[in-house]
Design a protein around this nucleic acid. Structure first.
Lengths: 126, 126
DNA sequence: CCGTATCCGATCCGATACTG
DNA sequence: CAGTATCGGATCGGATACGG
């Protein structure tokens, strides 16, 4: 991904930076703290290693994610949210998470949320 | 665009809902109040009528935008942000706008911002 | 465990022409 | 002014294989 020279507004730039099916999910997972590639791959259901690496790379180049490489064997690498950039972006994603929850609750999709422990059992009765 | 039955997390759903080159820009423009199709088309530089209509339709179906149709000629339609959904989404976009500004300032792209009046003349000296 | 490369179908979006 | 339809190139993302 490359940054264009001109955008309609800064918002468009940001939207472009988090474009990609897995980018928000990766950042969201990283809010829990630094992790390795393999952990991310295990935790993010359905992602392929290729997409994970590609999106990690882009987010790193954009300054939202940092990377620590430990020398020696076995290989060890940790990815983490940068501050303040990564964490600020997270605050936008936090709102988006809420919007998603609101939407699902209003459209009878709570069951999926309860299953994942995002919502507690037996939510407000209609 | 269609809503899938299952998502990794609610955040992914929201990200999907605002996927599309012009969606954030359209919503951003609507923060200024209700407007017509033709005004949007004029104000959003580079958009085609086709994309504008397509994205407006999707955002309307998703509940972020509302639409008032006035009877009689000349035809008159107004699009507006819904509350609370549209306005809540706007608050996430607000943060994304700031992130974009931050990025541009840190990468020597302020000139574009000053031109558009987003930043005042002569910002903080390095 | 970490990372790169290729192939290929799906989708996105711009251009353009046309209707009420 | 508001909205629909079609076509084609560009990009995205999944599968898969391979290398440090």
């Amino acid at each position: 991904m490359k940054i264009r020279a001109v955008y309609t507004c800064p918002l468009e730039l940001t939207h472009d930076m988090i474009k990609g099916k897995w980018k928000p999910i990766i950042l969201w997972r990283l809010r829990l703290g630094p992790t390795s590639l393999s952990k991310l791959e295990r935790d993010i259901e359905g992602i392929t290693q290729k997409m994970l690496l590609q999106h990690l790379k882009e987010l790193t180049e954009l300054g939202f994610i940092g990377k620590t490489v430990y020398e020696g064997y076995p290989l060890k690498v940790e990815y983490f949210l940068t501050r303040p950039q990564g964490e600020k972006l997270l605050s936008a994603l936090q709102i988006m998470q809420e919007i998603g929850i609101d939407y699902m609750v209003e459209h009878g999709m709570q069951d999926a949320l309860i299953e994942k422990g995002i919502l507690p059992q037996v939510p407000t009765k209609k």
